[in-house]
């Protein structure tokens, strides 16, 4: 199988993309996509036959779409949810995504979904558990999955394997690809005291298919993955390193709260091109103001256009 040795599992470098968000749909339909590709949150389009699904279907006809999921709960000790997997497969057959991704995490247990991306204890037991389930999922979806490193705010006393080793072993064991979120590496490195650069150098670069970039928030003792600010300088450095090591993979800017208008979102994405041209935007990490932090923001029906246009 050629994909075993080819970089990016033999998948293409799609270029520069953004997450497709409801608040931008009208602008995109009127002014065009102006990006190379879009990433969608799969759950937002499962069972959705409304306006946003119509926009997705028309975009999917003319540009690459990637399906990014938040509910696979790969690491949960609950059984795999085959109803959900069936829905995911159905959406994939309609959208024909370039690939499908989810996270190295669990979202709930005992049937309850926390709708958060929760960290796993990283040890032999959890590795065998995750690898076994990932093989089942990939067989069911008939394609390799991309697994993303989440941001985390705690590690377990029971963890014995560093996250970068866990992910490296997972891709060797299951043939999965990696979605390397350099912002999440930055956040977790800060929160747990490891070296972000070491993490990125230790990840098998030939298995990285996609990168995520985003802006976190500094809460003093810890960073939170808020996806609500411009990408800070340190994340751009890690991004440049990852692009150098991988030889060039798809870039996706995530912005999920305090979402800027589409032109400003594109301006932020354009910084990624500038970084590859050798420039380094000197943006500080956003400092927390008042309010409770919300980690791993998930774009749901907030801002769903109840009424699409002002007049009939």
């Amino acid at each position: 199988m050629s994909s075993v040795t080819a970089p990016r599992l033999g998948l293409p470098n799609l270029g520069y993309g953004v997450g497709l968000r409801n608040c931008h749909l009208q602008h995109i339909m009127e002014h065009g996509a102006q990006v190379d590709w879009f990433e969608i949150i799969s759950e937002n389009f499962i069972g959705n036959y409304g306006w946003s699904r119509y926009v997705l279907d028309s975009l999917a006809e003319r540009m690459p779409i990637v399906m990014h999921g938040v509910s696979l709960s790969l690491g949960s000790s609950d059984p795999l949810d085959f109803h959900y997997l069936g829905q995911l497969k159905g959406l994939a057959s309609a959208v024909a995504p370039a690939w499908i991704s989810d996270h190295l995490c669990w979202t709930g247990v005992a049937g309850i979904n926390s709708h958060d991306l929760l960290p796993l204890p990283l040890n032999e037991e959890s590795f065998n558990h995750v690898a076994r389930r990932l093989k089942v999922v990939q067989e069911y979806l008939e394609r390799p999955l991309l697994i993303e490193n989440p941001s985390s705010y705690l590690t377990f006393s029971q963890s014995t394997i560093p996250e970068w080793e866990f992910l490296g072993a997972l891709t060797r064991e299951t043939g999965c690809g990696l979605l390397l979120d350099v912002n999440n590496v930055y956040v977790s490195a800060h929160n747990h005291g490891f070296d972000a650069e070491h993490y990125i150098r230790a990840i098998p670069a030939d298995r990285v298919v996609q990168l995520h970039i985003a802006g976190p928030t500094d809460y003093g003792d810890y960073l939170i993955d808020t996806h609500d600010h411009p990408v800070p300088a340190r994340v751009w450095e890690l991004y440049a390193l990852a692009q150098e090591l991988t030889g060039g993979v798809s870039t996706l800017l995530e912005w999920d709260a305090n979402i800027p208008d589409y032109p400003n979102l594109l301006a932020e994405l354009d910084k990624a091109r500038q970084v590859l041209a050798g420039r380094r935007p000197q943006v500080p990490v956003a400092q927390a103001t008042a309010g409770t932090p919300l980690s791993n923001p998930i774009d749901f029906q907030l801002n769903e256009p109840h009424v699409r246009a002002a007049t009939p």
Binding site: L154, G193, D221, Y222, I224, P293, S295
Partner: peptide, 21 residues
């Protein structure tokens, strides 16, 4: 359950998840 030895104590780390939920 929660590893200690670096940075904020377990209670604060758990609180991020509890509040976020």
């Amino acid at each position: 359950v929660v590893a200690t030895g670096y940075g904020p104590p377990p209670r604060l780390r758990l609180d991020i998840y509890a509040q976020g939920y």
